[in-house]
């Protein structure tokens, strides 16, 4: 498995775990309050810090098991994969943004708009790495 595919798998796991942690808290707070929880900045910071720390721990391990390939720059095919995955993941973010806007227009719930857009950001990042894995395996 190419080094960048391994890192993509690692990031999918890290981002999914971080997203589950974040939204499990938000849903629990919303259920307790009986309304959509407001944006909780410390929780957003915890989400970001978790991703940074997990990446710092996991990426050197992935690099160590990949040998010298880890230091090599992306070749022409890998650059195409990275670009195409980034492009496609933009659709996930766009979809979340449009869904959030329509939802806000319907419910006037600004907190829900925040959570929808933030979820879209998370989903688009996971989708980007998912598309990388897809293109590595199925061709670009």
């Amino acid at each position: 498995m190419p080094f960048r595919e391994k890192t993509a798998w690692a990031m999918i796991v890290i981002l999914t775990l971080a997203g589950l942690f974040y939204y499990q808290k938000i849903i629990a707070i919303s259920l307790t309050a009986g309304e959509t929880a407001p944006p909780i900045v410390p929780l957003v910071i915890a989400y970001v810090v978790f991703i940074i720390i997990a990446s710092i721990i996991v990426m050197p391990i992935v690099a160590a098991i990949s040998g010298k390939e880890a230091n090599a720059p992306a070749d022409e095919r890998e650059e195409m994969i990275l670009a195409k995955a980034g492009n496609w993941s933009g659709y996930a973010l766009g979809f979340a943004a449009v869904a959030g806007l329509f939802n806000y227009a319907w419910t006037q719930d600004g907190n829900l708009l925040f959570h929808t857009i933030f979820a879209g950001l998370m989903a688009s990042q996971i989708a980007e790495y998912g598309f990388q894995v897809w293109f590595y395996r199925r061709g670009v």
């Binding site: 190419p2 090599a72 070749d75 022409e76 095919r77 890998e78 061709g139 670009v140």
Partner: peptide, 22 residues
């Protein structure tokens, strides 16, 4: 030729068309 082994495999399997340069 300055690519990864995986790219050579993809070329041989017909899953990737290399650039004109490659």
């Amino acid at each position: 030729i300055g690519v990864t082994r995986q790219t050579v495999i993809a070329i041989e399997q017909g899953r990737y068309s290399p650039s004109l340069e490659s």
